[in-house]
Amino acid sequence: MSLLERLNEDMKQAMKNKEKEKLSVIRMLKAAIQNEAIKLGKDELTNDEELTVLSREVKQRKDSLQEFEKAGRNDLVEKVQTELTYVDVYMPEQLTEDELLQVVQEAIKEVNATSKADMGKVMGAVMSKVKGRADGSSVRNVVQQQLS
């Protein structure tokens, strides 16, 4: 079952259960995926492309969450946290710190990285492997630790 089909099923269920917030988030995700398909000129996105869209949506919400927390907008913080819980359902399982460390160490060996100057090469190799299963800031932190 593709992500779009799963979203359609969950949307129907949310309508039946009268879950307005969940329905709103699902519709937003569907729209983001459909807009990306239109932008790329395709009828359907691949799993990787769908994952990229979902990752972008999660990142946007996390960024908004930080901004709202800084501004002291607790009402918006709660709303964004709720949205994040609904979006996280569709994301693949996140890597543990140990798994991420292992992937980073393998990538360092692959690209023969020796210093922080090689960080870009390592990040590129790691991000392609962990797409959607780890966010960029945590990957960056682990890479920096390993290269220092």
Rank of each mutant, 00 (worst) to 15 (best):
V89S: 09
S137Y: 04
M123C: 09
V143N: 11
K131V: 02
D43Y: 01
K16I: 12
V87C: 00
V126Q: 02
T52Y: 14
A125C: 14
K70C: 11
M11V: 11
K30E: 05
E19R: 08
E69F: 07
E49V: 01
Q66A: 14
T85M: 06
R73Y: 08
G41L: 07
S24H: 07
S137H: 09
E93R: 15
T82K: 08
E36Q: 04
L7N: 09
V104C: 04
E99W: 07
V89L: 12
V80E: 09
L7R: 14
K39D: 10
K116D: 13
D98K: 00
S115A: 15
R140T: 04
M28W: 07
A125T: 14
E78M: 12
G124H: 13
K121N: 12
Q34W: 07
S115C: 06
S55F: 05
G120V: 13
E36L: 00
M91G: 07
L4S: 14
M11D: 01
L45I: 09
E44Q: 09
K121E: 11
V77M: 03
K30C: 06
T52K: 15
E93A: 14
D75T: 11
N74L: 05
I26R: 04
A31C: 13
K79S: 13
E36K: 05
G136A: 10
E69M: 00
G132N: 10
K39S: 12
R133W: 10
E5M: 00
E78N: 15
E5C: 07
M91Y: 06
T52A: 02
D63V: 10
T46A: 03
K42I: 01
L147V: 13
K129R: 13
K79C: 11
G41A: 08
L147N: 03
E110T: 00
L29G: 08
N17A: 06
S55C: 03
S138A: 01
G120D: 12
A71S: 15
G124E: 14
K20C: 03
S138M: 10
M127N: 14
Q66T: 12
A31R: 09
V58D: 03
E69L: 10
K59S: 10
A14W: 02
V103I: 15
D48L: 02
M119W: 11
G72T: 06
L29N: 06
D43V: 08
E50R: 05
Y86M: 03
A125F: 09
L95F: 09
A107D: 12
E99T: 08
T114M: 11
D88F: 07
L147K: 06
V130L: 03
D48E: 05
M15I: 03
L76Q: 10
G132Y: 02
G136E: 11
S138T: 02
V103Y: 15
A14R: 08
K62P: 07
L147D: 12
L100Y: 05
D43S: 15
K59R: 15
L40K: 03
E78G: 04
M1N: 13
E110H: 14
S128H: 15
Q144I: 09
L23R: 04
N141F: 07
G72P: 04
V130R: 01
L65N: 01
L4C: 04
M28F: 09
N47P: 10
E110C: 12
A71N: 15
K59E: 14
L3G: 01
A31G: 08
F68L: 08
L54N: 03
L65Y: 00
P92F: 10
L54G: 02
T82R: 05
S137F: 11
T46F: 01
N35I: 03
L54K: 00
E44D: 02
R73E: 13
